[in-house]
């Protein structure tokens, strides 16, 4: 019996989520035994023809070519999994969605007319149907293993959606907001990183995107109390997962923008 096939693709991104798969040092060879790694150019030169059972896609859609390419990949994949902050929410490069692309391009390139870029960087789900989403910048590699296993076992993957804040309490990590007065997006952010920032004595900056059940208004209100410099709270919301609707909607409300006049953020 032939093995299920796995394909890994990269769109606009930093490579980090694909690298997370290669960082499965103890599991990589077993994974290559359990599935046929049919397309994964960062890892191998050989490619097998589509269709594929599972396609993992890293990166956001930010060029006209990528708009076409994601449709093609969707049509060739039984299961499409978006991996990482770029694929699930447009990534940090989605900051361009709130500004004029021409201004940004001029800041970096002498001849912006040579570039072939869309004015927006968007998640895969704005273009095609996505079966599962793994959030995170980068993803938690064990969540990737869980999704692959679940798909092979024909069950739903177990991907927790509660907030970081809950896990800090469970693990006995001191609350940086209550104890040190540091704004922390943990109450509004999806778990998955292992409460990294609070356990390093700093506030969460939302790499894993919004927790679906979070009350962002309350999250913002509690952070506003401890803001240390102008527009700090806005900076957290307009960071890695800036284009995730729950973050960018609250980021535009007066409660968040009122400090902006003094601050430097556009």
């Amino acid at each position: 019996m032939s093995k299920p096939t796995l394909a890994v693709y990269k769109f606009s991104s930093c490579d980090g989520c694909q690298l997370s798969l290669l960082n499965l040092e103890d599991e990589l060879l077993d994974l290559a035994g359990a599935v046929e790694i049919a397309y994964f150019l960062e890892a191998r030169r050989r490619t097998l023809p589509a269709p594929y059972d599972i396609a993992l896609v890293e990166g956001s859609v930010s060029t006209p070519h990528e708009v076409e390419r994601i449709k093609e990949i969707r049509s060739q994949a039984k299961n499409l999994v978006a991996i990482g902050a770029c694929a699930t929410s447009g990534g940090i490069q989605a900051l361009r969605n709130f500004t004029n692309l021409d201004d940004l391009a001029m800041a970096v390139y002498e001849h912006p007319e040579y570039l072939h870029a869309l004015p927006t960087s968007t998640p895969l789900s704005e273009h095609v149907r996505v079966d599962y989403e793994l959030w995170g910048c980068p993803i938690n590699k064990y969540q990737a293993v869980e999704v692959i296993q679940a798909l092979l076992q024909k069950r739903r993957p177990n991907l927790p959606t509660h907030s970081i804040c809950l896990d800090c309490k469970r693990q006995g990590v001191v609350c940086v907001m209550a104890a040190y007065g540091i704004p922390c997006l943990g109450p509004g952010t999806r778990t998955g990183c292992g409460v990294l920032c609070p356990s390093n004595g700093r506030g969460c900056y939302g790499c894993f995107g919004p927790a679906p059940s979070a009350d962002m208004k309350s999250v913002v209100r509690s952070m506003n109390f401890v803001e240390r410099y102008p527009a700090e709270v806005r900076g957290l919301l307009t960071h890695i997962s800036n284009y995730a609707p729950a973050f960018h909607q609250i980021a535009e409300t007066p409660e968040v923008t009122r400090n902006q006049a003094r601050g430097g953020q556009k």
């Binding site: 930093c14 694909q18 490069q93 692309l101 430097g264």
Partner: peptide, 30 residues
């Protein structure tokens, strides 16, 4: 090289200095 441009230098403009190491890390996962 048709690497999609991501305009990091452009959107660093206006950010607080303490955001910079977290943002520039995202240029390269390796």
């Amino acid at each position: 090289i048709y690497e999609p441009p991501r305009f990091f230098e452009g959107f660093l403009h206006g950010r607080h200095y303490q955001d910079v190491p977290d943002i520039t890390a995202r240029i390269c996962g390796i």
